[in-house]
């Protein structure tokens, strides 16, 4: 049984088809990249996997379960936004994760704080955007999850720190699990990917091993992506 299975997943917002019969299967022990232009349905897919949105039709399963209390305990989610009360300190968030998640490794979290230069006594309200991103990453990667879902983990981070963040992800994830990274910064991320998934207008149009794709096309993943989606931009004009 695959770690993640999506069949015929569809979701419409008003007149916009965010997901259109999406099919996806992810195995354990892989780092998979999810790429697609804005509005391709990436965030919708991720929210469905996390139980934040209900699909109109189709199914999504993690370790055989529909998104529920159990899947929430094995999925570590890094959303593309802040989700904490301002008045909290970093330490408070660590306490919350410690309280609620059995797989949270407090020692590792403390260590990551040092590596990422985070002071647990700081109030979240006073942190810069980049520092908040690092804090969220620290919390998410300190869990021994079966599935890490990272929605744009590099977006708020300055270019110099991006490599550092990737290295943090690489050296801290649970190898028995998988990492699902949604991003539009493909060239920054492609080096660490096992597999890559392209999403276009709510459908999965490509799902290949990254190196195989490079071999077949003689191009980098980033270039493949531009090739596939450039035509559309031209079409719209």
């Amino acid at each position: 049984m695959n770690l993640v299975e999506c069949h015929g997943l569809s979701k419409t917002y008003g007149s916009i088809r965010a997901l259109d019969n999406a099919e996806l299967a992810l195995e354990s022990g892989r780092i998979i990249g999810l790429a697609g232009p804005n509005g391709s349905g990436k965030t919708t897919l991720i929210k469905i996997l996390n139980g934040l949105i209900c699909p109109d039709s189709g199914s999504a399963a993690i370790d055989g379960h529909e998104p529920d209390k159990y899947t929430r305990s094995i999925v570590s989610y890094l959303p593309d936004r802040d989700y904490f009360a301002d008045w909290m300190k970093i330490r408070d968030m660590m306490d919350i994760f410690s309280d609620f998640y059995a797989d949270f490794d407090r020692a590792k979290a403390e260590e990551l704080c040092k590596t990422l230069e985070l002071n647990p006594d700081m109030r979240i309200k006073t942190l810069s955007k980049g520092t908040r991103e690092k804090m969220q990453l620290m919390l998410v990667m300190s869990r021994k999850a079966r599935l890490y879902v990272l929605d744009e983990p590099l977006a708020g981070v300055d270019p110099a720190a991006r490599e550092f963040i990737l290295r943090t992800i690489l050296t801290n994830y649970n190898e028995n699990g998988s990492v699902f990274i949604s991003t539009h910064l493909i060239s920054d991320v492609e080096q660490v990917l096992d597999e890559v998934v392209f999403l276009k207008e709510g459908r999965v149009v490509l799902h290949r091993n990254a190196d195989d794709l490079r071999e077949e096309t003689g191009r980098s993943i980033d270039e493949c992506f531009r090739d596939m989606f450039r035509y559309d931009a031209w079409k719209e004009n």
């Binding site: 022990g29 892989r30 780092i31 490599e163 990737l166 290295r167 690489l170 050296t171 190898e175 080096q191 660490v192 990917l193 096992d194 990254a210 190196d211």
Partner: peptide, 17 residues
């Protein structure tokens, strides 16, 4: 493998291959 992969900044599976 893990050590090398981290040094090169690549996926351990890729390094393994």
């Amino acid at each position: 493998v893990r050590e090398l992969a981290a040094e090169a900044g690549v996926n351990p599976n890729t390094m393994q291959r």
